[in-house]
Nucleic acid binder design. Structure first.
Length: 486
DNA sequence: CGCGTTTGACCAGCGC
DNA sequence: GCGCTGGTCAAACGCG
C-alpha cells in the first residue's frame, strides 16, 4: 500500500509538474508540448522527404532543449517541494507543542478569515477548550463509539422514515422504550448533519428542493435568526435544513442539512443532495471505524483540525461542514491549513469535519509560489486521503465538480483557469486513486469497515463520474439563489 | 381557498 | 430540580 501511495504521489507529482510548467512558466513550452514535439519528430522520421532533414535536425535540437528545460523544471519542482515540506514540518512542530495535534479541517482553499477569540461563547465559534477536551479523547474521523451505523440504515432510504419516527419516539419516551438502543442509533444516523457555507445574499440558498419553513429561532450568540425548513417534495421526507447567516460574516449563509431524501429528487437538487449525502456518508462511515489508515495519513500531511461544535447544550450531532464561501484571507501559506475559524459550531461528543472548499479558484490575480506550494501539498495529501477513503473520494469529487462548474462558468473572462486546472488535477487524482483503491486497498481492515458501514459509499464511488456531470449541470446553485423560492 | 410564513408556546436535553 | 437552549408544533395571518 505504501508503494502504491508513493506511486500515486509520483504520478501526481508529474501532473503537478505539468501544472507548474503551464502555469508558472507559461512562455515556455509545457511537457505536453514536449510530447508533441517528440511525436512530431517521429512523424518526420517516417517521412521520405529529404527536404525535411533540416527540419528534423531542428526538431531534435528543440527536443534536446526542451528536455533540458524539463529537467530544470523537475529540479525546481523538487526543491520547491522539499522547501514546502520543511515549512510544513516546522509549522506542525509548532502546532504540536501548542495546539491540537489532529485536524479535522480539510482546506481545499483559503479559509475564512480567522475568527476573533472574543466570539468564543458564540454557538458558531470553535471552542478551544472543547477542542482540547476532545483531543484528549483522541480525535480521528472515527467518532464516538456510540455512534455506530448500520449499513442498512445508511443505504436504505426507507429507514429514514423509521429513523425520524424513532427520533420522535426518543423525544417522547412515553411512546415506548422498547427499541431504545436502536432508536438512538437511528436517530443519530438521521442526525448526521452536513453544513454548507456559501456566500449568498438571498435568504436561503437555492438547492433545487422544495422547502417549507416551519419555525424560526434566535439562537444564542447570533442575532441572525435561524430558520427551520422541511423538505416538501414528499410529505414524509425526513430531510430538514436550518438556515442561518453567519454572524461573523453576514454575507455567508450557513445551511445545515439533516437526513436523506426518501424520494426522487429534482435534477437541480442533485448537486446539494449528492454533496450532502457524500459528506454525510463520509462522516457516518468514518464514525463507524477507527480509520487507522486515514489517521496515518493525517499524521503525514493531511491536516485535520479538531474543530468542534460548541453549542454545548445541543444534542451532539456529528456535523460535516462544506465551506464553499471562497473567502479570501491572509496570504500566509499556513492559513491554508488553519482551523475553520469562525463558524464551527461544536459538539461535545462529535467532531465536526470541515471541508473547506473555498479556494484560490474564486479570487484572484496573482498565482504566487505559495499557491503552488499549497496546491502541490494539497494534491499530495488529498491523493493520500482519497486513496485511503472511498467516501472521502466521492465527497471530494462532488465538491470539486461543483467548483469546476464554477470555474468553467468563469472561463468566459479567462480568469479562473488556474484554479480549474487545480481542480482537474484533483479530479484526476480522484479518478486515478479510484482504480488503485478498487484493486489494492480493499484488503485493509479500514476499508472493510468502511465498505461494510456504508453501502451508499459504494454507490458514490460508482457514480463519481455521474456526480461530476450532475454537478456540472447544476453547479450554479450558489449563483442561482435569486431563483430560489424560499 | 389553499398554501406558505410568522410567531408564541411547548418539549426535551443538557449543565449546574 | 431548575434554568437555559435548541428544536418543533400549531394557530393566526398574509398572499396570490
Amino acid at each position: 500500500m505504501e508503494v502504491l501511495l508513493m506511486n500515486m504521489a509520483d504520478d501526481h507529482a508529474v501532473k503537478q509538474e505539468e501544472n507548474i510548467t503551464q502555469e508558472g512558466c507559461s512562455p515556455e513550452p509545457s511537457k505536453t508540448d514536449i510530447g508533441r514535439k517528440v511525436h512530431k519528430t517521429v512523424d518526420l522520421k517516417s517521412s521520405s522527404s529529404s527536404s525535411s532533414h533540416d527540419e528534423l535536425e531542428t526538431a531534435k535540437e528543440e527536443n534536446e532543449r526542451l528536455k533540458m528545460m524539463l529537467e530544470q523544471i523537475q529540479k525546481n519542482y523538487k526543491s520547491l517541494q522539499s522547501r514546502f515540506f520543511e515549512i510544513i514540518k516546522q509549522g506542525s512542530a509548532i502546532e504540536e507543542g501548542s495546539e491540537e495535534p489532529e485536524l479535522v479541517s480539510l482546506s481545499l482553499g483559503r479559509s475564512s478569515p480567522t475568527g476573533s477569540k472574543k466570539d468564543d461563547k458564540k454557538t458558531t465559534i470553535c471552542s478551544k477548550t472543547e477542542e482540547d477536551d476532545h483531543n484528549k479523547s483522541g480525535l480521528t474521523l472515527g467518532l464516538d463509539s456510540k455512534f455506530q451505523l448500520s449499513t442498512e440504515i445508511v443505504s436504505n432510504p426507507s429507514h429514514e422514515n423509521s429513523s425520524e419516527e424513532a427520533s420522535k419516539v426518543q423525544k417522547r419516551p412515553s411512546s415506548g422504550v422498547d427499541h431504545k438502543e436502536g432508536v438512538e442509533q437511528k436517530s443519530q444516523v438521521k442526525r448526521a448533519r452536513v453544513s454548507v457555507r456559501t456566500r449568498c445574499d438571498a435568504p436561503t440558498m437555492y438547492d433545487g428542493c422544495q422547502w417549507r419553513k416551519y419555525g424560526q429561532k434566535i439562537s444564542k450568540g447570533n442575532p441572525c435568526p435561524r430558520a427551520y425548513y422541511r423538505c416538501t417534495v414528499a410529505p414524509d421526507c425526513p430531510v430538514r435544513k436550518q438556515v442561518q447567516r453567519s454572524f461573523a460574516d453576514m454575507s455567508i449563509l450557513v445551511t445545515t442539512y439533516e437526513g436523506s431524501h426518501n424520494h426522487p429528487i429534482p435534477v437541480s437538487a442533485t448537486t446539494m443532495a449528492s454533496t450532502t449525502a457524500a459528506a454525510a456518508s463520509m462522516l457516518l462511515s468514518g464514525s463507524s471505524t477507527s480509520q487507522p489508515a486515514l489517521s496515518t495519513e493525517i499524521n503525514h500531511g493531511l491536516n485535520f483540525s479538531s474543530s468542534l461544535h460548541d453549542n454545548s447544550r445541543l444534542p451532539s450531532y456529528p456535523t460535516i461542514t462544506l465551506d464553499l464561501t471562497g473567502s479570501p484571507s491572509s496570504s500566509s501559506p499556513f492559513n491554508y491549513f488553519n482551523r475553520f475559524p469562525t463558524n464551527c459550531p461544536a459538539t461535545p461528543r462529535f467532531p465536526s469535519t470541515n471541508l473547506n472548499f473555498s479556494s484560490p479558484l474564486v479570487s484572484n490575480e496573482s498565482f504566487t509560489q505559495e499557491n503552488y506550494f499549497y496546491q502541490q501539498s494539497l494534491t499530495d495529501t488529498l491523493t493520500k486521503a482519497i486513496t485511503s477513503d472511498p467516501s472521502f473520494r466521492s465527497l471530494i469529487s462532488a465538491a470539486i465538480s461543483s467548483l469546476v462548474g464554477h470555474s468553467s462558468a468563469k472561463h468566459g473572462d479567462g480568469t479562473d483557469q488556474k484554479g480549474d486546472s487545480f481542480s482537474q488535477n484533483l479530479m484526476q487524482a480522484a479518478i486515478n486513486s479510484q482504480s488503485l483503491n478498487d484493486s489494492s486497498l480493499r484488503g485493509s481492515s479500514y476499508f472493510k469497515g468502511f465498505e461494510s458501514s456504508s453501502s451508499r459509499i459504494g454507490s458514490s464511488n460508482q457514480s463519481s463520474s455521474l456526480s461530476f456531470s450532475s454537478f456540472n449541470a447544476a453547479s450554479t446553485l450558489a449563483f442561482d439563489n435569486k431563483q430560489g423560492k424560499n
